[in-house]
Amino acid sequence: MSTWISVARYQLTDRYTFVTGPWTILGLDFLITAAIVLGYPGRNGQVYAGALSAIYVYLVVTGALGIARQLPFALALGVSRRAFYAGTTLLAAAIAAVYALGLTVLQLIERATGGWGLKLHFFRVPYLLSGPWYLSWLTSFVGLALMLAWGMWFGIVYRRWNLPGLLGFIAAQAVAVALVLVIIGGADAWSSAGRFFKALTVEGLTGLLAVLAVALLAGGYATVRRLTV
């Protein structure tokens, strides 16, 4: 366990990847969105941005870079693959929890200020992030953790098989998604799939995403175990 914490600390030394990067992107994104809203003040009603996704996308990069850059030196320092992965997962969970809290606080401020005085819905997302604060936190946490886990798997695949592996990995995911679509189509199940997603609550969706995140973590672990440096 103490090695896991050392690994988490070691990973966190890369502040640009883990801290500065995501929040700089989000901050710039927010400024641009606010500037656009300020430039078109004539619109009636509420403004929905959807630009919050930037931080989620960035965390995929964070997960991938963190693993790919820091793994070889950690192994040289006598860290096992397992301990390295566990420590990185620990840090990813902590980051997802804290950043979700940040997003939740910003959401509360946004609510209290009437959308920053611009009727802007940046941190409030209809359906996904519109419930009570704790639910917003939970959904954000699971979503951020999912992105980090996905990125970590990308980073491990890159370390193990380089660029060809990365391309193969992306192709495999595309094929998997296509297969699911084909199966749904083949079973003539589009309407029931539609009903399922229509009936899905945010809590339910959060649960599904959590299952997916755990599956991605397991995939990353299976890949890191036979990695060589």
Binding site: R69, Q70, P72, F73, L75, A76, L77, G78, V79, V229
Partner: peptide, 14 residues
Amino acid sequence: LRQMVFVREDQAYP
């Protein structure tokens, strides 16, 4: 592994 250090010529550093 906790009792081992490996200094490599081609070490990739962060």
